[in-house]
Design a protein around this nucleic acid. Structure first.
Lengths: 174, 174
DNA sequence: TTTTTACGTCAACCATGTTGACATATTTCC
DNA sequence: GGAAATATGTCAACATGGTTGACGTAAAAA
C-alpha cells in the first residue's frame, strides 16, 4: 500500500521505518492472539483468562498484587476472571504461611493443560518466525522489543549474554 | 521471576526463549498502547478510533471494505467508530466516481493533527528502541516480527534489501 | 493501638467486540 | 433487461473486559 522503494530522503525513510514498526506490532499482536481466542471461546473463557493463566503458570505462587502489577488492570477486573478460574478448577489459591494476608496462586493440573494448549499455537508461531529469521535476527528482535517495553518491566528480560551463545539449531527439532 | 541463568538443556532453553518472546510481545503491546489511550480518553475516543485514524491516514482514499480487511473486525463494529469520526470531523468520506458504491476515506486536517499527536508517542518509543539496539538489531526485529504475522499480511512489509542499507544514524537527529 | 497492606465484593458504567436481520444503491453477469 | 453480487449502512441484542467508587475484613507493621 505504501511505496517503500522510491525513497531517497533519509528523513522520510526514518518516518517510514518507524511507521512500519508500529504497523508490524499491530498485525503481529492481532494474529498472535487470534488462535488462542478461538480455543478460549469454546470454553466460555476470554483473552483475559488466558493472560491470567499464562502469568500464573509462568510465576507459580504469585500473589494477587504481583499479578496486578504485571497485567496493569484493576483488582476488580482481575477478580472477575480470577474467581472464575478458581471456581472452575484451573487455579489454586493457598494462603501464604509467612504472611497470611497473601494468597499464592498456582495452576492446577487442569490449568497447566489449558495453558499448554493455549500457548502451543503461540509458541509454534514464534518458533516458526525465529527459525525463518535465524539466530542473529532473534537477538535483534529481543533487543528492540525489550527497548519498547517500559523500563520498569525491561528487567524481566535479560539480554542474552554473548558468553553463552544461543544454540544454532543444527539438527534437533525446531 | 524465572531463572534464566541456570540452564544447560538446550530444549529447555528453547522453551524459555519462546516464552520470553510471548511475554515481550505482551509487555511491548501493553506499553505501546498505553500512552495514546490516555490522549484518546480525554477526547472521548478509544483505541478503536486510533486504529481507524491510523490506517486511514496511512492509506488515503481507502475503502471501508479494505479497512475492514486490515482491522479484521465486523462492519458493525467499524461503523460505530467510523461514523463518530466522520461526524466529529476527523475523517472525510467521498464517493468513488469510478464505482459509486464505494466510499473513499481520508483524514481531514483535524484528523491528521490527531493522528500525529497519537503516534508521536509511539514513534518516539520505537525510535528510542531502534536507536538503542542499532541497525542490525532493527533488521532482525523486522524479520522476526514479519514472520509472526499471518502470511496474508506479511507482504505489506518488504524485507529491506541488503542493496540499500539503512542509514547508520551517524549524526542527524534520531 | 493505630495504620497500612492484601484481598474481596457490590454496583454502575463504558468501550468494543460479536451475531443476525434487513435495506439500499450500484455494478456485474448472463 | 433482469438477476445476482458487491459495497455500504443500520437496528437490536448481547458478551467481554476494562473503568470508578464505596465499603469491608483480616493480618502485618509501625
Amino acid at each position: 500500500m505504501v511505496d517503500v522503494k522510491s525513497m531517497a530522503n533519509p528523513l522520510f525513510l526514518r518516518e517510514e521505518e518507524l511507521r512500519q514498526g508500529i504497523e508490524m506490532l499491530f498485525f503481529a499482536y492481532r494474529d498472535f492472539t487470534g488462535e488462542p481466542d478461538a480455543i478460549l471461546g469454546e470454553l466460555g473463557l476470554g483473552r483475559a483468562h488466558h493472560r491470567v493463566i499464562y502469568f500464573v503458570g509462568r510465576n507459580p505462587e504469585i500473589t494477587v498484587t504481583d499479578l496486578l502489577k504485571i497485567l496493569k488492570i484493576t483488582k476488580q477486573s482481575l477478580s472477575r476472571v480470577l474467581s472464575q478460574l478458581v471456581s472452575e478448577g484451573y487455579i489454586n489459591q493457598e494462603t501464604d504461611q509467612a504472611d497470611r494476608r497473601k494468597k499464592l496462586l498456582t495452576l492446577t493440573e487442569k490449568g497447566v493443560d489449558l495453558e499448554r494448549s493455549l500457548t502451543a499455537n503461540q509458541r509454534a508461531r514464534i518458533a516458526r518466525a525465529y527459525r525463518a529469521a535465524g539466530a542473529e535476527a532473534v537477538q535483534g528482535f529481543r533487543e528492540v522489543l525489550r527497548g519498547i517495553i517500559d523500563p520498569a518491566d525491561q528487567e524481566r528480560f535479560e539480554i542474552a549474554s554473548p558468553t553463552m551463545p544461543v544454540p544454532r539449531r543444527s539438527k534437533g527439532r525446531g
